[in-house]
């Protein structure tokens, strides 16, 4: 075993983040409910997108776009699960 820096994640993360995420399964940090991201209740013309758990209404994710950056905050999700391409 050896300790590497974050560059070692490049390939795996590209696989995760370059795919349609709406089919990814989230686990809600508030109530442990699991469901695909497409089932989130999204509140929109806020200062950003707010995705709430359909079971407990806790915030699962926040997405804020600026003219030059995008912030994705996932503190409300303990896990995202994605199927791998066969």
């Amino acid at each position: 075993m050896m300790e590497l820096d974050g560059n070692a994640l490049a390939g795996d993360l590209r696989e995760v983040f370059a795919t349609d995420m709406t089919g990814a399964v989230f686990t809600c940090a508030g109530c442990a409910h699991t469901g695909v991201l497409a089932t989130l209740r999204v509140w929109q013309p806020a200062p950003g997108l707010v995705g709430r758990c359909p079971h407990c209404t806790d915030v699962v994710l926040r997405l804020v776009r600026t003219p030059t950056r995008v912030f994705l905050t996932l503190t409300g999700a303990t896990r995202l699960e994605l199927p791998l391409e066969p």
Binding site: P47, G48, V59, R62, L63, V64, T66, R69, F71, T73, T75
Partner: peptide, 8 residues
């Protein structure tokens, strides 16, 4: 807070 955590 809420939006400050989210990037504001």
């Amino acid at each position: 807070g809420f939006w400050e955590t989210g990037g504001y």
